[in-house]
Simulated scan of single mutants.
Amino acid sequence: MSISSNILQQTNYSGVIIAMEKNLIEFIMYCSCIPGAQAYQSIDHIAATTGIPQPSLNVVMGINMDEQTIMARIKEVMIPFKARHVPMLWWIFPDTQPANLGHYLKQSGLQYNGAEYGMTIELSQLPTSLPPIDGFSIEEVENATALQEWIHVSSIAFGGDASNIDPNYIKFEQCLGWGKDLPYRRFLGRLNGKAVATSSIFLGAGVAGLFSVGTLPEARGRGIGSTISLAPLSVASALGYNIGVLQASPTGYSIYTNIGFQKCCSIQTYLWAPR
């Protein structure tokens, strides 16, 4: 996959939202290159499953289904996820069809998983600097040791158990590799030498998608989240990208507004998990 896709110029929110969904789709398809993953593009949806028991790595997106046959289609789409017994998400963006898809997903046994904010920023408007944080530095992940630290910090930051990180998730991240020539690049923040924060960026669909922004609990409240977010976006800007996008949880919203992101839409997710 090349990072030289047509770069999105300044556009209205409608165009950005379409690019945001396509960026996420390209990212999921990119992640599906790992052994054992399955991904396909149908006429009315895109689906991917890595087999790793994290809902965000097993998804249905780009949905444009006929309401007359929607219940049967949902049942068909769910077959591979249920067969592999992995939790999964349906992503509902503003242009998803039918507009009341959530109603049918509930009838099919899925649960509403909440809403996230779709956010965007013109990279030319990024702050040139943020208030300095004593002892804090950022590096790009460029070797196996740094990647292992990145995986450890990211897992804990997102609520995982430090003593029991899923080995399949470790293999997944290792399989994606590292390198400045790849569309997926990770960044690691250190406080007084200790790895405490992560972020990553995926360059696709003409925009820069920001992902995996996390900080260890003991290092929060110092502005580290904003600073670790700024680093990959600055890299994307230097490569000629104009627009940054992300999906923010309500708790992360203030981090992104702090560096200039603006809300452009609401994105819903519905969850299925094996009993």
Rank of each mutant, 00 (worst) to 15 (best):
A197F: 09
Y270I: 01
Y241R: 00
L110Q: 00
I156A: 12
L239Y: 01
I121G: 04
G260H: 12
I92G: 07
N113R: 09
L176A: 13
I243Q: 07
I70Y: 00
G51W: 04
N64I: 06
H103S: 05
T120H: 08
D66M: 07
G179A: 05
A162W: 03
I18K: 11
E139G: 00
G209Y: 03
M71I: 03
G15V: 11
L89E: 10
Q10A: 14
P127E: 03
A231R: 02
A39C: 08
N58V: 09
H152R: 11
D66C: 03
W150D: 15
N242Y: 12
S154N: 14
G252Y: 09
W150G: 15
Q268Y: 11
R220H: 04
A195E: 01
N6Y: 10
C33D: 10
V213R: 09
G189W: 07
T11A: 15
V59I: 08
N113G: 05
Q174L: 05
I79C: 00
D134Y: 06
H152I: 06
Q111M: 06
I255Y: 11
K263M: 11
V153N: 01
T198G: 14
S234W: 01
A236S: 06
T96K: 07
I92D: 14
G204Y: 08
R222I: 07
E21V: 03
S14F: 03
Y241M: 09
G102W: 05
M61K: 02
L203S: 13
P167Y: 02
M61E: 05
Q148N: 07
Y40F: 14
E67W: 01
M71Y: 05
Y169C: 04
D66S: 13
R220W: 08
L101C: 09
G15Y: 02
G15P: 03
S129T: 13
A37F: 13
P131A: 08
V153W: 02
M119K: 04
L216H: 02
I25K: 08
D66N: 12
N12I: 12
N164S: 05
M1H: 03
T120E: 08
T11D: 05
A248V: 01
I165C: 12
S229P: 02
I70P: 10
G221F: 02
K171H: 13
P98W: 07
P232D: 08
G118F: 01
Q38V: 14
P80E: 12
S200V: 10
T120A: 14
N258F: 06
L24N: 08
K194Y: 15
E76V: 14
Y112G: 02
N23S: 10
P94M: 06
H45R: 06
P274A: 10
V245D: 01
Y253P: 11
S266C: 09
Y256R: 05
T120Y: 04
E149P: 03
E139S: 12
A48N: 05
V16S: 02
I121D: 02
F202M: 12
H152S: 11
G204A: 14
Q125F: 01
W150M: 06
A144K: 10
S56Q: 03
